[in-house]
Design a binder for these strands. Structure first.
Lengths: 344, 344
DNA sequence: TTGTAAGCGTTATCAT
DNA sequence: ATGATAACGCTTACAA
């Protein structure tokens, strides 16, 4: 790496002091026009770029946002895109660290970003994370923090999340409307909020419709195609198997679908299926899979906006919580009764 | 952001000089045991973290790698994962910027990362990029640079890329072996190397097998499902349409597939289809799509390794070029003749 | 209108 | 075994 041009270089070349150059560069009112001109011209010529490190050291801010996410799947990639877009606009650079769904790596990443003196954190926790000391540490240091997507209840900070209960309700109610009566759920890890909330919606809806809750039909498994495949095989092997499955992610829906096909059952006839996330793949497979859209890109943008707002508000903001409304997209996998009209 | 504990704080508390504290912290041989112990204990207690900014300013290195990629699709996400893994291991943090296939954004990102004083660049160019002044600028500043995946011919630096010609050959030869005679190609943008190389493999293979090249069958379109869909519709509407299509990405294969299904044609019977990237989706759709695996994760790791190597080698390395061998995975969309034996 | 000096947090060099 | 000082590149009081 070659030496960059510094203010000092310009100062020496022009026989000025560094402070004069500094001020000339920023168009201070108390600098002679000629001087300004000379300085600016030389700066241009030498391709002068202010050293961000020095600035950061001085101002104690790096204009960098640390983003910690559990992985880079479709949903998170899309969210990061949204975050990135807004952050860039606001003059911030984003540093993305994946924890790979590992608690240990999440801690390491937090530490790294803390060391890197990021101006703040935007975090979605890993599915392994059950203890939140590392997050608390961020708060103790009074560093701005926004949680998104996979938020944590007992951490007090601004949050952006999906209305997961509503998502669970939409999916389940749709299945009920289609005449399914024995609806199973492939939920995610038990400690994960989004998992429980989607399940809560599921349970509420069953009760609301007078359907009985069958505990055999509630299965917790990792966000993972393979696990979902195996769980579904077990479901279908039961004496009195479900006639519909709601999976809380599309990857899981794919796994379920493979198991259903393998068993020779048809969708939506023998069994109904609804996924979550509305990933492009849902409309590519056959039958296409109904799924709940969570507006990831918008969510990413909202998160970054909230974060920037927080950063700019001098005093501690009262923790806002932005809740995005999901929307089910009905496709072949669950559509037994033709829809009459597009209903809301 | 609260004030961090500094060496000075410790020095004052212990009535020592900052230099003593600094050395004690790093276990210098010429510091009294008692002093070391006291310093370390207090550092621990006050949760002292060295200020990276100050270190970076002093040492002129940020331990940060700037990664510029055109988007965050499946392939690139996977590659970034690989890069990340190796970089972390080596003590580097990665700053990922997406150019969104836009030349303008690529330039902006380059500038931003340059300003951020990253220690080096790992770059895959956007599909719009035809001029490379911004890349040259990196080199002029003598900042380490590695190109990967979408490399550029007339830039002289270490590169990691797929053997795209081989990929094109494998795909095309497989179709020929399956008895297809009128093979079309959906190639990517014309200025993109990977596009041209895959096409080169396609052309070579046609010639090698004595098949004539039909220019109507060579279509350049964006890496995009929609364009591929439309291009395929055109292909199928021709008087003498192709009996097989090789698309240089899986997203394009999906687009082609939709057009083929819409036309009521069957795969692999009426028409054969081979994609590129071997994304998970290829085995999820029906019929499953044959595709060329490019080992993205390995490629990411290889890239980061080469980069780190470059960084650590004092003098300018002679530009290495790592070439990854692709491998076709045959699935239903192109398999008319049952495979006899797994042939390497 | 311009220059001087201190400071951001750290380390390396040279005293003591 | 420890301390003083300068330096990394920049800004900002304060002087001149």
């Amino acid at each position: 790496m070659e030496k960059q041009t510094t203010i000092k270089d310009i100062a020496i070349a022009l026989r000025l002091s560094t402070s004069t150059v500094s001020r000339a560069l920023r168009d201070a009112h108390d600098i002679k026009q000629d001087t300004k001109k000379a300085v600016k011209e030389l700066a241009e010529k030498l391709d002068y770029q202010p050293n961000k490190l020095a600035l950061s050291l001085l101002n104690r801010q790096t204009h960098t946002i640390g983003v910690i996410i559990p992985n880079l799947d479709y949903v998170l990639s899309t969210m990061v895109k949204g975050i990135d877009e807004v952050a860039l606009e606001a003059g911030y650079t984003v540093m993305v660290c994946q924890s790979d769904e590992s608690f240990g790596r999440e801690i390491v990443n937090t530490k790294r970003l803390l060391d890197s003196l990021v101006d703040g954190f935007i975090v979605s926790v890993s599915s392994e994370t059950k203890v939140f000391e590392h997050i608390r540490k961020i708060q103790q240091k009074k560093i701005p923090l926004v949680l998104f997507d996979r938020v944590v209840n007992n951490i007090d900070c601004p949050k952006v999340r999906l209305d997961n209960v509503a998502g669970g309700i939409q999916a389940t109610q749709h299945l009920v409307d289609q005449g399914y009566k024995k609806i199973a759920i492939l939920a995610g890890p038990e400690n994960l909020n989004i998992s429980n909330k989607r399940m809560e919606g599921y349970l509420q809806t069953l009760k609301l419709n007078g359907l009985k809750v069958d505990n055999r039909f509630i299965i917790h498994c990792d966000f993972n195609q393979q696990y979902a495949y195996e769980a579904t095989k077990e479901l279908l092997a039961m004496r009195n198997p479900p006639d519909a499955i709601f999976t809380i992610s599309d990857r899981m829906a794919i796994g379920a679908m493979l198991a259903i096909k393998e068993k020779g059952l048809s969708m939506p006839g023998d069994i109904g299926l609804v996924g979550f996330n509305n990933e492009p793949v849902t409309s590519l497979v056959s039958p296409s899979i109904s799924s709940v859209e969570m507006y990831s890109f918008e969510m990413g943008k909202a998160t970054a906006k909230l974060f920037i707002e927080m950063l700019h508000s001098e005093d501690a903001m009262q923790p806002a919580e932005i809740v995005i409304k999901p929307k089910i997209f009905v496709r072949e996998s669950s559509l037994r009764i033709p829809l009459k009209k597009t209903k809301s």
